[in-house]
Amino acid sequence: MLTEIKKSILNIYEEILFKDNFVDRNTGIVATDKTRKLATYPYVGSKYGKAKRILIVGYDIGKDETPNEIQTLENRSDIETNNLRGVNPHIGGTYFTGLYFLKDDLNLNEFWEDTKSTKYGKTFNSILRKVPIHPSENPLSYIAMTNFFKYVTIGRGERNPETNEIISRRGDFDRIFIDKEREINLFLTEIEVLNPEIIFFQSKGFQDLDYKIKEHLLKKGIKLFYAYHPSDYSRAGGNIPENYFSKSTFEIVK
């Protein structure tokens, strides 16, 4: 199943983005706006489909991590193979999102109860850094991830060699469509391939998700949730798992 999913993802990117050279299949650079590129394929965990199917959707990519090329499906496997004690705030929050929705499937209720409060830390990644033992089952192996806005400003998150300044990682300027119809088509086709039972949107911006997209997903029987990005430290106490999922997570029902 997993191999077929990955083949299908490669095929839809070929048909929707690469076939007419809208995006360069090697560098990811967009033909009509050479300041932006497709930085990565989606992430599909090695055990996706073996438990409840969870798709986590970010608003935008955040950083151009692979200059001059697209991050491949294989390269993204480091999300689940990296040392959990060193994960960044985003992946820490993504781990706990997977844990929250999969704790029954993976028999991880005891670990959830032990880590959901401030016992080990006040943020997702600090908890993972300090908890004595991680479960053998990694929730990150069972989820998939993609982004709603597909393109990133080239070099975002890196130092500009001309000005010596870091190109901002704030995503406001990358939350735009270059070809809305094409990009919405790609997003919805990804969902067809991944066939999730739950979609979790990592931004409050998704509360204003386009009505037609929302209705399409709800009619498919997918449960939709959204919360602010897990690396957002402006929310007092919000990055503690029990706070994030009880106070800040909202189900989209209509």
Score class of each variant (00 low, 15 high):
44 V>P: 02
61 I>F: 11
94 T>C: 09
140 L>P: 00
127 I>F: 05
211 Y>E: 14
219 K>L: 15
231 S>D: 10
19 K>I: 12
66 T>N: 11
143 I>R: 03
147 N>V: 04
110 E>T: 07
144 A>P: 00
88 N>T: 10
198 I>M: 09
77 S>C: 07
236 A>R: 15
185 N>H: 09
112 W>M: 06
192 E>Q: 11
216 H>C: 08
126 S>P: 00
56 I>G: 00
84 L>V: 07
168 S>H: 05
207 Q>F: 07
238 G>E: 05
136 S>K: 10
239 N>W: 05
253 V>G: 00
116 K>F: 06
85 R>E: 07
244 Y>V: 03
185 N>G: 00
243 N>S: 14
214 K>W: 11
49 G>S: 05
249 T>S: 07
118 T>D: 11
88 N>R: 10
252 I>W: 06
148 F>W: 08
233 Y>A: 13
20 D>V: 10
99 L>R: 06
180 K>W: 13
26 N>I: 15
157 G>K: 04
200 F>L: 09
93 G>Q: 03
86 G>F: 13
237 G>T: 07
157 G>S: 05
222 I>K: 05
60 D>Q: 08
72 T>W: 08
33 D>G: 02
154 I>P: 02
137 E>A: 12
111 F>Y: 12
173 F>D: 13
75 N>A: 15
183 E>D: 09
